[in-house]
Write a protein that binds this DNA or RNA. Structure first.
Lengths: 187, 187
DNA sequence: GTCTATAATTTGATAGAC
DNA sequence: GTCTATCAAATTATAGAC
């Protein structure tokens, strides 16, 4: 019976550390992208040495793949059910969480822009992010995939523009225009 | 009189070399962003040593600022007059030139995504790119700045999505939806 | 699991000969 | 203007002690 308690501790403590590493790495990757941070940056943020990061994630690709998968899963989970009322608005609010604060660019938006130079597995995780986003939006819009693609593209682009100009208003206005365009149905 | 000929040569030859450096650096930056290429990468592509690149552009920031300014000026020039017929379509076509070929991501889209980590002057050049794009689109749309912002955001985002998924169709469909949304006027 | 130490390479940048 | 040579620092990654 006491062995169960021991087991839980052995399993849980390393998971916490792993999560803290991902937290630090995510923050750094959302600032500078794949090539804009180093293992030592992550280690310094966590308060350990870079060799310890390698113990949990042998290569940089391992780290960024894990990072991106976690980011994607959390993001999709935060969206909830696309068939519930106010779905399009919830989507716009989710994208807005990447606006207004420095060093919090949408991870997948940044990695997608760097896509050509990324390791294969990382590129794959990013592609899955947008596949899932478009699927979700298409369901929210009643199956209109074209408008879903335009909406996701618009929100993703609005995040980049608003951040680049340090003006969240750009995002809010663009999101409003995109949502009204979406709700206007077939031209 | 012969001195004029000499003068032209002295002025023109270095300018050609400078342009060739910018050509190579632009290609690399459009692939991996600010942190995704090195002076040695540029030098190898041009066929010289990295010290020669430093002769023309002392620091990396100098190089990327020059790069971005040239990219912006050329892009805006290619758009022509926003008051001439078919302006919105020309805008969509201009953005489409960054779709379909690898290593040709929109330079400013990539740098804007990396914005938080960029040197100040570089960030400024990128901001100017989108200021000018929104202004141009607003004039093309008869002064509707909100719809101009949404259109630029949508096209910029569609480029990233289409490249990331290696599917130019995403851009074409999203651009069509965005243009039809734009032409539908106030909801 | 974390550390020290280190390997092997790459980076941005400079000095000075030609 | 381009080169060789070099620097100091940073990079990803590994080996092995604790």
């Amino acid at each position: 019976m006491t062995s169960m308690t021991d087991e839980r501790e052995v399993i849980r403590r390393p998971a916490d550390r792993r999560e803290r590493i991902l937290d630090a790495a995510e923050k750094l990757a959302r600032r500078g992208g794949y090539f804009g941070f180093s293992f030592r940056d992550v280690a310094a943020a966590v308060g350990v040495k870079s060799a310890s990061i390698h113990h949990h994630f042998p290569t940089k690709e391992d780290l960024v793949v894990a990072l991106t998968a976690r980011y994607r899963d959390r993001f999709l989970e935060s969206l909830g059910d696309p068939l519930q009322p106010g779905a399009a608005r919830r989507l716009a609010d989710a994208y807005r969480s990447a606006v207004g604060t420095r060093d919090q660019m949408c991870l997948c938006g940044l990695l997608a822009a760097e896509s050509d130079a990324l390791p294969e597995a990382t590129r794959g995780e990013v592609g899955t992010f947008y596949d899932a986003n478009i699927d979700w939006a298409a369901r929210a819009l009643g199956g209109e995939t074209e408008r879903a693609e335009a909406l996701i593209a618009g929100l993703a682009g609005a995040v980049v523009l608003a951040r680049s100009k340090l003006d969240p208003g750009i995002y809010d206005r663009a999101a409003a225009a995109l949502l009204s365009g979406v709700s206007s149905g077939h031209r």
